[in-house]
Structures are given as C-alpha cells and as structure tokens.
Design a binder for these strands. Sequence first.
DNA 1: GCTTCGATTGACAGCGCTGTCAGAAGATGG
DNA 2: CCATCTTCTGACAGCGCTGTCAATCGAAGC
Lengths: 338, 338
Amino acid sequence: MSKVIIDDVAARAGVSIKTVSRVMNNEPNVSERTRDRVLSAARELNYRPSLSARGLAGSRSYLIGLLYDNPSPAYLAEVQAGLLEACEASHYSLALHPCHHEDPGMPAAVSAALAQARLDGLIITPPVCNVPALMAAVEERGVPYAVISDEAGPSGIAVTIDESAAMRDLTEHVIGLGHTRIGFIAGHPDHKGAARRRDGFETAMKAHGLAIDPAMVVQGYFDFESGRHGARDLLSRTNPPSAIIAANDDMAAGALQVAHDKGLHIPTDLVIVGFDDSPLSRQVWPPLTTVRQPVADMAREAAARVIARLTGAAEPDNPANLAFPHELRLRQSSLGDT
Amino acid sequence: MSKVIIDDVAARAGVSIKTVSRVMNNEPNVSERTRDRVLSAARELNYRPSLSARGLAGSRSYLIGLLYDNPSPAYLAEVQAGLLEACEASHYSLALHPCHHEDPGMPAAVSAALAQARLDGLIITPPVCNVPALMAAVEERGVPYAVISDEAGPSGIAVTIDESAAMRDLTEHVIGLGHTRIGFIAGHPDHKGAARRRDGFETAMKAHGLAIDPAMVVQGYFDFESGRHGARDLLSRTNPPSAIIAANDDMAAGALQVAHDKGLHIPTDLVIVGFDDSPLSRQVWPPLTTVRQPVADMAREAAARVIARLTGAAEPDNPANLAFPHELRLRQSSLGDT
DNA sequence: GCTTCGATTGACAGCGCTGTCAGAAGATGG
DNA sequence: CCATCTTCTGACAGCGCTGTCAATCGAAGC
C-alpha cells in the first residue's frame, strides 16, 4: 500500500499499463468493461499516479501556479480555497508563487519558474496581473491563465465582479442615507480594481448631483495603516465629511479606529463603509457595511476554466471575461443598531 | 530560452550531464574549476532542472507538504510565508493540503496523497497534528516532518512557543492590573495548545492565590463567533468578570464586540486581552493586549529543519523540540489611552 | 465465409534527471 | 620513476508514466 505503481494495477486488472494510463486519463476508446476492471483495481490498490512521472512523460505537470503579491491574508486564503477546490476536482495541484509586483526582475523570474516547474496554468491576482511586463511574459510563454481582474490579455480568462457598479451601489446607499459630504479613501494606485472603485464612487456622486471635492478624496494603499492616515486627513479638514467610503475593509477598519479615537460615534457622528466583506468587516465594532464579492467562487471558476482549457474540454459559451454578482452587506457602521 | 535541458548545459560546459547533475545538487567531488564552468553555463542558459525529472529519477520530489485545517487566514498566511522562505532558499516547493481534522478517513487520504505526490517532507499545523491516527500514519510512512506544536512523534520535529508560560505572563499582566475576577474563554478542545494556554491561566491564578471559579471559564472554539458567545455568557453571570482573557485574538475580538454592544467602555469597565498578536488584534478598537508568537519564524525553522534532514545536513545540536520566545504586546484594551 | 473498417489494446521508445559503478586524472610516497 | 591512493568524471540503466504506432478483435458488408 505504500508504493503502488501502474504495473501493479495493470497486473491486477489483467491489462497493459497503457490501458491503465488511458483509463486514468479518461481517454476515449476503452471498453466499458475494461474501464471498470481497471478502476476497481486502482481503487483496491489505492493507486495514485505519480505526478513526477506524468509530468516528465507527458507534456503536462498537473500543476497550476498562483501568482500573488501579499494581498490581505483573508483574500489570499479565500482565493486559495477556491482554487484548491477546482484543482482537487481535476487532480491538479496548486503551486504558490508569491512575488513583488514592483520588482522589475519579477517577470523574468516568473518566466524562469514557469519553465522549471512546467506549470500548466497560471492564476494571477491583482496587483500582479496589472503589471504589463509580467502579462506580456505570460502571454509569450503561451500558458493558459486567468486573472482575478476585469482585463486579461488576448489569450487569458478574466473573472471579476463589476467593481465600478459595486462601488456605485455602495455610494448610492450612503447618499441615500442623506449624506452629501462624503470622503473617499482610494485603493492602491497599482491596482486596476482601485481605479474602478473610484470611478464607481465618482459616477454615483455625479449621478446624484454631488460635487466631488478633491479634499474629500485621499490616496490609500489598501492596508489598515493607510486607512488610518486617510481618515485622519479627511477628519482634520475644516469641513470634514459625514461619511467615509473606503475602497476596502482594511482601510475602513483603520478609519473606524481613528474615529473611535476621536470619540466619534459610529454611525451617528460618522458613517464608515468598506468593500470586500472580509472577515474583518464583521469583527470590528460596529460591523462595517460593505460589498461582498464571491472571491472563492471566482477563484474556483478561474481555475476550472484554465483546467478546462488544459484538458481541451469544450469552451463554455460564455465569453472569456465573466462577471460575478456583488452584493451589498448593510451593517451597523451605516445603519446603526436595529 | 524556453526549454533548456541538462544536455545543453553539459554541452556548453564541455562536461557530461552527470557532472552537471552533481553541480546542481551540490554534491562533493567536483573540482572547483569544473563547478564554475558548469555554473556559468547554467546561468547563461538560464537553466532550471525539471522538477518532474528530478522527482522521478531521484527519490526526492522537492516538495514539502503543508497539512492544515482551516486555521485563521492570518495564521495560515504567516505560516505559508515562513515555509515559502525556507523552501525557496533550498529550491523546494510547497504543496498545500487542507484537510478536516475530525474526518476519520483523513489519515488514510493523507497517506495516499503522500504516496502520490511523493512529498519529501511534511509540515503539520494544529489541530491536525493533534490527531493521533494521522500522526501514526505519518510516522509509519517515515516521512520527515515537523509540527507547529509542542509535541511531535519520535521521529518528528516540534517548533512552538511555551504557550503555558505565555498565557501565564498574560494572566499575570491582568492580575497585576488589580483584577481578581477574571473570565477565561478557552480554545478549541481539539487543540493541544488550547489546553496549554488554559494551564497557564490556571497556574497564574493559583500562584496569585486567586480561586478559579468554574463559572468564569467558558468553552470557545478559537473563532470569532465563539468569542461572542463566551463573552455573552460571562457577562450575564450575576457576578461578571472585570477582565476577560480569550485564548486567541479572534475570540477576544468577539468579546470586544459584545462588550461594545453592551455599552461597556474598554478597558475601564472591562479589560479584554487576546493571544497571537494577529493583525486583527491591532485592527479592532481599542487594540488588544495580546501575546506575540513568531509564527513565520517558527514555520521557517520547521521547514528548514525538515529540509536539513532531507539533505542529510548535520543535525543542529539543538533538540528536536525547539521553543521560540513569546512576547507580551501591551495595548489599549488593557492599558487605556496613554 | 471472407474482406473491410472502426474500436480497442499493447509493445516500445523515450521524457530529463539521478544512482551506480567503473574508469581517468591527480596526488602521494618510496 | 612507478605503485598506491584519492579525487574527479562519465557511461549506462532506469525512475513511472505517456505518445506513437502497430496489432488485435469484433461486427458489418458482400
């Protein structure tokens, strides 16, 4: 039981190893009876094909790479969970490739790693997928890939939510509460999603006839600390906002902390809302109104699509760009106790 | 540049492929001159040995597996970061293996996966490393492994902090603040660490002549929601505590939320402290006093030790069980504004 | 009944690398 | 200078699997 190889299965099923191989790879032209015999032999022996041998002999490595640059742990965990689900379903494995998106040598390094590990596919999260040089390198290598973003290269798959629309909805919720002076803490300038969210905010403001005061928009970097800075800036203005929209939950939590320090009561003195529906948004006090994006689902779908492309499965009708629904999560940071 | 194999390097360096192999594996008995020639040839060609071929030909797969059961995202991310550092330094890769520690079939499944992927080593986090059947299976397979816990099997490596001492320190800090009626929200009963922390709490209480009122100790499960439940229970007692110690930060954050809902001011009405120094502990309000354990360092060391064992490097003198230092992080949830 | 063709199966040659072992090249000593 | 080690290097045989291609089988067609 410790080291079952294909020959054992072949012997037990009374067929050649090639036939076992066919069955294990779901190849056509195997009679139903043979297939069953092989499958039960494999099951009884608890046989699992060796990934190394498969990788070496075939062209495939059965490895999907995840390219990321220290996003928030919660986001990373959710992405991984989604990817792993899809991978396990198809007997693929996931290889982690953290990297630094600002490092100019990164695309080359990734390219080399791709060659070494013979990764079959790649999943790329923001902000890495917003680095043109990297995307060019990936395209050039011809590896099937998906980005968790709204724009892939010509051969890529993109899964995303409509971040602009989501932020528009969120902003309209705040506007609907009666606020007119609304502060905005923008996301990391290297993330395309951050720009989309900002667009959504501005669109909603304009649609409701509200001017966008430049003093009410501050630069953030998607991390907690930048949320604190942003909120301190906004609240120290001569005419501070009555509501703050942060481009993600971490920054909103930072804003919340600053507000508490200043003795402001949320949401009566100040409304604060975030974006992402991260665990943090539920764990701070008061819980943050935010927008949920189904990250795990998106990741699962991204991996599934890439794997489908790999296995030559028929491409679904849907376009390569597919959008997932977002959902407003109204909580006490905008609504008060209920 | 896309597919450099060992023969190319051998040709360029004017040696046999075996010699290239020796150099790539840092084997002894290669002259300095030859080694240099091979190394520069490899560098110029941007050669990376194929993992599949290495895995197939040699006994090694250059893969370290991480066995975990949905711990908090922050913990997972930190562990992964530490492991990846060690792996990259030695050209190993990390394979993720989430599992369910209560699933009776899990040990067998892991054993099978071990055989399939030919994992060279294993890193196991709590609570998976507290499942005897699993640990028995791992021991039986003879794979070098490390647990991030204080107790490994005969052949394993254990890296940990002294959780009991850490909780003792934390408890003494709270006692030192003048509290005598202290509530405790215990951790998940399947985690050995949870028991250690509880021991530490009780030891400190006894050492200071404080009785442990059973009504002041509630069961938690290390998650936010159980922290809420626990705190609600504790605070609804006829004689509620003036301080709550949670066995981790997530639960402390839950307790904090309940306290806020009840209108209690932290820390004047109630002191709340956590454990782990997770990002969350800094992001709630007020920030939580907690205990830092250097998870990333521990993980890195765990992986480094396992890899050292794999490469036959001399075992360091230190025992297989090695303890890292912990550190009290005093913040406003116990100290108030300063 | 015998040919024909598609469906099914197997023999065989690697994939790129490492382990083994024998051979070549230096180093050492008398 | 030659014998004796030691150090270094290379030839060769797989590792477990898949791709190719040829062989076999069975059913349909004449």
